[in-house]
Simulated scan of single mutants.
Amino acid sequence: MKRQHINEIFIIRAIACLSVVFLHSVNFGIEGYREVISSFEIFAYSALAMIFYFGTPTFVFISELLLAHSYKDRIPDNFIIKRVKLILVPYIIMGFLYSFMDIYNGGIELSLNTFLIESSKNVFLGDFHGYFVLIIFQFYFLHLFIRKIINKFSSKKVLLISLLINVAYLSFFKFVQPIDTPFFQYVWTRLYWIPFPGWIFYFFLGYYCGVDYFRVKHFVRKYKKAILIMPFVTLLAVFFFTYLDFFPRSSKRPDMIFYTCSVIFALFYITSLLSKVPNLLMIISKYSYGIYLTHMFFLYWLKPIYSLPIYIYIPILFILTTVLSIATVKLLNKFKVGQYIVGKIGVSSNNVRDKKIQKVS
């Protein structure tokens, strides 16, 4: 069965990818310049970073939207195997490689024991920025399980219940204190990110948008004014709760669900107005998975340049990191084994009009 691609997704995927890289560039800039910039500048750049936390949740949404839209009738026999080879294997390999960086940056002595510990944390617990892969694989299996029964239920009820579950799950780790042991401290610090209830609303929203995509297109055009206003309203709420120290700076918090979804629908409306995908965004979309996996390597090694002000350094860091990631993915994909290390280069499309949804084998 040939897979259909929704054209607007090329742009939204590219924007989500760039938001992740820019977010990490800002955070690295803040840490690198923390001793030489004012408290107000730290505050300002931290606020700037908050705008871009929608990136990873958007990837979760996109992955299910494409799956629900492309395979409405049946799932190909090689569905899981193909994704294991082209998504999970690169994740595992990069998890091993990032463990060396974790050891080096943590000042830990390199040994077989420390390597096994750090690499196991990365691969099995998602203890590096690639944790997103463990989340979407849970949703691949969840999709296989629910696709035959979900249509028996009201979409509004499913979305409402999944939203309540999502909010309750994330709130639990905010308002309930962990038992004072290393294990529970680790769960509350980052392991709670991995189980699917922390992302379940994005999954079901992506599912329904994928199944009835053109109805979604009609919806965002009909309510375009509200759609365009909501990202600003929800972002103000995010800022409010952040600077009251109500929630930490993270994408894994209840209010970020509403902000991320408002950004997604605003992007759907804006991209639906374009007659052609900008070439730069098409390139980013094609290389998005590889960029996602590799960009942290370059952020770790591109050290602060104190002769440059931070507002110059951060854009340079962002551009260099993106370009070097693309170059690395392109170079390695010249060899067949490369796609199993940094991911496969994706497909492209020449326009984004509603009626021209390409079929790519």
Rank of each mutant, 00 (worst) to 15 (best):
I312R: 00
F184D: 05
I229V: 15
S325D: 07
I62C: 04
L142H: 03
L142Q: 02
F219H: 01
V360W: 04
F172I: 00
L66K: 01
I87L: 15
K334S: 08
V211S: 13
F258R: 13
H143I: 04
F40Y: 15
V263F: 10
A16T: 09
F297D: 02
G290K: 13
F201A: 12
H69K: 12
V167I: 14
Q339W: 05
M296S: 13
M101H: 07
S349Y: 10
F318N: 07
R249V: 05
I194D: 00
I42T: 13
F172Y: 11
P278G: 09
R13P: 01
G346I: 13
I270L: 15
K217A: 11
M101K: 10
I12Y: 07
F204R: 02
K355C: 00
V133R: 06
D127L: 01
F204W: 03
F59R: 08
T328E: 08
M1Q: 06
A237K: 12
R34Y: 12
T322M: 07
W199P: 06
V342S: 01
L116W: 15
G106N: 11
V26I: 15
L331K: 05
F196Q: 03
L23F: 12
N279S: 13
P248C: 02
H5D: 08
I310P: 04
N166W: 00
F52T: 05
L67G: 05
S154Q: 03
A327N: 10
M50E: 11
I264T: 04
F43P: 00
L170R: 10
L308W: 10
Y71G: 01
F28Q: 06
V20N: 08
P178W: 07
M50K: 11
F204C: 02
Y169A: 02
F10T: 14
G106H: 12
S39H: 09
K356N: 14
K276D: 08
V211T: 14
Y53V: 12
G55M: 09
S262I: 13
T260E: 07
A68S: 15
F258C: 12
I310V: 10
E35T: 11
F241N: 13
S111R: 09
I179S: 00
W301L: 15
L125Y: 14
S120K: 03
G198I: 05
V342G: 00
G338T: 11
P309S: 13
E31Y: 11
F145N: 01
K152C: 01
I319Y: 03
F239S: 14
S307C: 02
F246W: 12
V337F: 14
V84M: 04
V337E: 08
Y340K: 02
F203L: 05
K174R: 08
I51W: 13
S46K: 15
V337S: 10
F265N: 00
V263P: 07
M101L: 14
A44F: 15
C209Y: 05
K344I: 13
S171L: 14
T271P: 04
L164N: 03
A47V: 02
Y289C: 03
S25M: 06
P254D: 04
T181C: 10
A47N: 02
